[in-house]
Design a protein around this nucleic acid. Sequence first.
DNA 1: AGTATTACTACCCTCAATGATAGTGCTATA
DNA 2: TATAGCACTATCATTGAGGGTAGTAATACT
Lengths: 119, 119
Amino acid sequence: MTECKQQHNPEECTKMIVPVRDALEILNGKWKLPIILSLTFGAKRFKQISKDINGITDRMLSKELKDLEVNQLVKRTVHDTFPPTVEYAITEHGKSLEKMITELRNWGLEHRKQIMGNN
Amino acid sequence: MTECKQQHNPEECTKMIVPVRDALEILNGKWKLPIILSLTFGAKRFKQISKDINGITDRMLSKELKDLEVNQLVKRTVHDTFPPTVEYAITEHGKSLEKMITELRNWGLEHRKQIMGNN
DNA sequence: AGTATTACTACCCTCAATGATAGTGCTATA
DNA sequence: TATAGCACTATCATTGAGGGTAGTAATACT
């Protein structure tokens, strides 16, 4: 971490923030990270993902999967069986989110403890 | 990481997702992580933060700071000088987000490279 | 006298995110 | 026969995130 104190170089700080905002733009909304996490446990089909993620609607899942595909985080594969089955898998690039999601998850667990404690 | 394969134990996966969703609920929106990152470089005043974060309006900054305060990620201190100055600082609990934000930031930088490459 | 700064609050508005519900074409199962 | 599952798509409605503009009380600068 470089320095970015109030009195020093405020523009440094602005620059640090940019890639965070980039990332947030790709991963925005309630559902993208849960979907990615679900797929880190193996390729899955549409209905399977929707069962993993409590409360997501088909409409949202469909849309979010499309977004993730466009951003190369998820790969969609159609198998030409009868009936055709569709499988979603995480890409290498998607896997690079694993560490970050783990940190987020741990923080979520910590936060719950923290809030419980301070009542 | 415990196992959570399609054929094995789908409920495991659901459980893994819960704390991620908890975290996302606290940190949602475009602005909270940028604000926290800005404050990891030292306590700052309102206008200073708004200068660090390009594009945020006073209205949003005010609201997000309030949210962060409620969730004990940011501490607000009023100094009774004339005129009174208000200082925002990150809490210990807020600091526990640092690793996660660093991971997110690195991913943001990686992602930019990735997307540039595949055109 | 006029303008700027600080740390906001109030009001109004728009649009994107999300939710609810239903439908489709096909197959498998009871 | 009918019921259910799959992988969606379409339509409609709602909500909330976020933006635009303005105002305020106090002081400080020019």
